[in-house]
Simulated scan of single mutants.
Amino acid sequence: MYDEETYQMYTMNEDAFTRFKAKELEQLRRARALYRLKAVALIEWGYEIKPLEEMSDDERSKEHRMLTQHLPKIGSDPFDTEIEVAAFVRGYYRTAATRFVENVTMNVNSVMFWKLLPFVNYLEMTRGPQLDSFMNERLDIFGSTTVKVYENLMEEDEKIAELRRRLKGEKDKLSQAMASINGLECSSPGGSGSETILATPVIDLDEAMDDI
C-alpha cells in the first residue's frame, strides 16, 4: 500500500482533495500574512500565531480586523504562487494520508484478522478468550493505550538498532574524511582539479548485521 501511494499522485476523491487544499491554503496565507506584518513592524513580533481551532471567537475577530487593516499597506504577496503550490502539495498529502490510514486499518481488520479467525476459533474452544481479549493479552493495545505502547511494538531489535546507529556514525565520518581528501586533491599543485573524484566507501548494512 505504501508503494502504491509513493508511485504517483492519484485520487478520485476530488471533493476531499478540494477541501484539504482550501484548508491548507487558508492556513498558509494566514501565517504568511502575519509574518509579513511582523517583518515590517506593523504588528508586534511577539504576537503568537495560534491554530485557529484553539482561538476564541473574540481572538479570531480581533485578528481578522488586524489583517484587514494592515495587509493593504504592504501590497500583494510576491510569493502567492508558491503559497498556492505548497497548499496543493499539502492538500494532496492530507488526502493521501487519510486514504492510507483508512486502507491499512481496514486491511488489518478485514484481511489479517480474518486469516487469524481459525486460530482464534481454536483458542475459543480450548481457552475461551475472544479476539480482542487475546490481542490485548499479547499486545496490550486496548484500553488506556499510550503512544509508548505503539513505539515499543514498532521498535526494532535493540542490537540491530545500536548497530545501525554505530554504522551511520561511521559512514558520516567516512563521508567527511573523503570530502576533505577530495578537497586536498583538487587544491594540490599536482592535482587534476575536479576530475579527481574519490568514491565514498559503501557499507553493506545487511552483511554487517549478519555478524551479530
Results as ranks from 00 to 15, higher is better:
residue 47 Y to Q: 04
residue 193 G to E: 08
residue 180 S to Q: 15
residue 177 A to D: 14
residue 35 Y to I: 00
residue 163 L to M: 14
residue 108 V to S: 01
residue 183 G to D: 08
residue 61 S to E: 09
residue 84 E to P: 02
residue 103 N to E: 06
residue 80 D to L: 10
residue 14 E to C: 03
residue 40 V to A: 00
residue 176 Q to V: 11
residue 44 E to T: 03
residue 63 E to K: 01
residue 116 L to E: 05
residue 143 G to R: 07
residue 69 Q to A: 13
residue 204 D to F: 05
residue 193 G to S: 09
residue 202 V to R: 02
residue 127 R to D: 12
residue 39 A to Q: 09
residue 132 D to K: 15
residue 209 M to N: 05
residue 84 E to W: 01
residue 168 K to I: 02
residue 145 T to R: 07
residue 93 Y to S: 12
residue 45 W to G: 11
residue 159 K to H: 06
residue 16 A to H: 10
residue 4 E to L: 07
residue 27 Q to D: 02
residue 124 E to G: 15
residue 161 A to D: 08
residue 178 M to G: 04
residue 164 R to E: 02
residue 199 A to M: 13
residue 22 A to G: 04
residue 190 G to W: 14
residue 60 R to V: 12
residue 208 A to S: 06
residue 3 D to E: 10
residue 58 D to G: 07
residue 161 A to K: 11
residue 115 K to C: 04
residue 161 A to V: 08
residue 90 R to E: 09
residue 116 L to N: 01
residue 123 L to Y: 01
residue 132 D to T: 15
residue 107 N to T: 14
residue 57 D to H: 03
residue 132 D to H: 13
residue 209 M to T: 10
residue 83 I to G: 01
residue 192 S to R: 12
residue 194 S to I: 12
residue 29 R to P: 01
residue 6 T to F: 09
residue 96 A to S: 15
residue 102 E to P: 00
residue 69 Q to R: 12
residue 83 I to Y: 03
residue 195 E to W: 02
residue 22 A to P: 00
residue 40 V to M: 00
residue 204 D to S: 14
residue 171 K to I: 08
residue 11 T to L: 10
residue 136 N to Q: 07
residue 41 A to I: 03
residue 62 K to W: 05
residue 155 E to P: 00
residue 18 T to Q: 13
residue 162 E to P: 00
residue 206 D to K: 14
residue 40 V to R: 02
residue 210 D to H: 06
residue 177 A to S: 14
residue 163 L to G: 09
residue 29 R to M: 08
residue 37 L to V: 03
residue 66 M to T: 14
residue 117 L to Y: 06
residue 148 K to I: 01
residue 90 R to I: 06
residue 52 L to F: 00
residue 175 S to T: 11
residue 120 V to K: 00
residue 196 T to Q: 14
residue 56 S to Q: 05
